[in-house]
């Protein structure tokens, strides 16, 4: 998508401002879910992701066309989300739902409704406690199913770093979730 994005941006910079709709529609879902992962709240995620698009649009003249737009935009969005989280100490509720019962059962055995609710809440709290660099990588990989290659492009680090960050993040997470995982 990199070259394609940059062609659209070139058009916008040459005055075809409405072409920005293409970029927004291409990345809106990913942007919303990234913000949701940081805030845990629908309204805040919607507002922050839209604000990021507005901020990117207004800074478009500073964008280096030899770079990847998705990575540049991700940095804007992440900074906005981190600023927001810093000001609002509330971490929101677990923004996810169980969609694959068999996978869950295979890992934890059968769970009652109250246990499932508790498990979602604890998982969200433990992930929110991780350092930002580890939290973002866990959310991108396991809750948005983004490949290592794509993550490496988004956060601007080598594939090896993605893998080792995921390793340390998962190691911390499994320690902090001992009570749930070893029941």
């Amino acid at each position: 998508m990199k070259d394609d994005d940059n062609l659209v941006i070139e058009k916008i910079l040459k005055g075809k401002k409405n072409a920005y709709e293409i970029i927004v529609k291409r990345y809106m879902k990913r942007a919303y879910f990234i913000a949701l992962g940081f805030t845990g709240n629908h309204n805040d995620a919607l507002d922050l992701s839209q604000e990021a698009f507005i901020k990117a649009y207004r800074s478009l003249h500073k964008f280096d066309l030899s770079m990847s737009f998705s990575s540049w935009f991700y940095t804007i969005l992440k900074n906005l989300c981190l600023n927001f989280v810093k000001k609002n100490k509330e971490i929101g509720k677990a923004p996810w739902e169980i969609v694959d019962e068999s996978k869950l059962k295979e890992s934890l055995g059968p769970l009652g409704e109250a246990q499932r609710r508790e498990m979602k809440k604890i998982l969200w709290e433990r992930i929110s406690e991780l350092p930002v660099k580890e939290r973002e990588i866990i959310l991108l990989r396991y809750f948005q199913q983004i490949s290592y290659k794509e993550i490496s492009k988004l956060i601007g680090c080598p594939l090896g770093t993605v893998m080792s960050r995921l390793y340390y993040a998962k190691k911390k997470l499994k320690e902090n979730l001992k009570d749930i995982l070893h029941k």
């Binding site: 919303y32 879910f33 949701l36 992962g37 629908h42 919607l46 923004p95 996810w96 739902e97 169980i98 969609v99 694959d100 019962e101 996978k103 869950l104 295979e106 890992s107 934890l108 498990m119 979602k120 998982l123 866990i138 396991y142 809750f143 948005q144 998962k170 997470l173 499994k174 979730l177 749930i180 995982l181």
Partner: peptide, 18 residues
Amino acid sequence: KEFKKLRGVMMSMKYQKP
């Protein structure tokens, strides 16, 4: 084995769709 368990828990969930 432990990583597989943790991965299974996380992969069983998805963000709530608006």
